[in-house]
Design a protein around this nucleic acid. Structure first.
Lengths: 174, 174
DNA sequence: GTATTTTAGTTCACTGATGAAATATGAACT
DNA sequence: AGTTCATATTTCATCAGTGAACTAAAATAC
């Protein structure tokens, strides 16, 4: 595995040289972009690594967690698509595999019969309660050396960044 | 497109409820993880969106940029694999497509004849100099409302996070 | 100085995720 | 009743990424 450290020093040198050739480049912002992409990618890899023993991928895990976090433990494919940022096609597949493993059930909705009601099973809840805690130590290590202020700051800055990204994709306001 | 805002409020509620069921969960850190993953994913989507008109994907763009940022404009597949965090197989394919488009060349290395020397062409450099500047405005917008201190802080925190992630993947030190 | 091991890259076959289009069903509207 | 819209699934094609086997050349061992 390539270490982030190498990639980052490499990136710093690269951006330095590119901004000499193209001085209009917003170098600090470009650096932040690349940092976000690298760290985000590494974080995703770390997560998938922790999920592998449970034969889950990121989308399946996220879907399951959304259901788990619901007061009534249920949702619909459409809603899950939105919150898990997945296409409908993919969500059908995800639901298929989770149903096959007995972690969720698919049923018809009472009010709107076009809808499908997806619900986490008792086995699904047990599964989450069992698999989640072993992840906590590594999550803690990720933020080793972060003061409470650091965490608050990171939280705040990421939310602001999210806000800006939202506006980028919706150029026209309703 | 689902907005990050919705996903984030959803996530906040979800983590709140989960941490009531499982109080051992490090909620602030888990929130930061999810934020990083969401924002990172959205950033990646934004980048791919900007690259699509140029018929490039993230890996191809990154590979090209690494070469562009080199003083001599050259590297080897192995090195590119490391810095672009790609497998060797994939790098072969990436190099193939970039060669096909005339943006890079593949040649034999003089010293070590196992090695392949990959070099950006004049056309490749022109291509980068032309496609890069139109991206700058949107990069600037991403960090709208960020003070210089904010940017410095985000930079610092991301680098620290990267450091911690590195240590997670290398449990044994050399 | 030959033999073995290691390193660098490529080829091939495969998986996994994603998107577009067609379909089925039911609700809402006119 | 008929049209339009919404929800979900199926099918099909595509693309990015991965692992295993292979080739060639350098490094090391003996």
């Amino acid at each position: 595995m390539a270490s982030l450290k190498n990639c980052i020093t490499m990136m710093d040198e690269g951006i330095g040289r590119v901004s000499q050739i193209i001085p209009e480049m917003p170098a600090p912002e470009a650096r932040l972009c690349r940092l976000m992409l690298m760290v985000g990618g590494s974080l995703e890899a770390e997560l998938e690594f922790k999920l592998k023993p449970h034969k889950l991928n990121h989308s399946e895990f996220l879907t399951l967690m959304i259901l788990y976090s619901r007061p009534d433990g249920s949702s619909t494919p459409g809603e899950l698509c939105e919150y898990a940022t997945q296409g409908a096609t993919n969500m059908t597949r995800i639901a298929n595999t989770l149903v096959k493993r007995g972690l969720i059930t698919r049923g018809a909705s009472a009010e709107d019969r076009r809808r499908v009601s997806i619900r986490i099973t008792a086995a699904g809840k047990r599964f989450v309660r069992k698999m989640l805690p072993p992840m906590f130590p590594r999550v803690g290590l990720m933020f080793a050396g972060f003061s409470d202020t650091d965490k608050r700051n990171l939280d705040r800055l990421l939310r602001r960044l999210a806000q800006n990204l939202d506006q980028l994709s919706e150029p026209t306001h309703p």
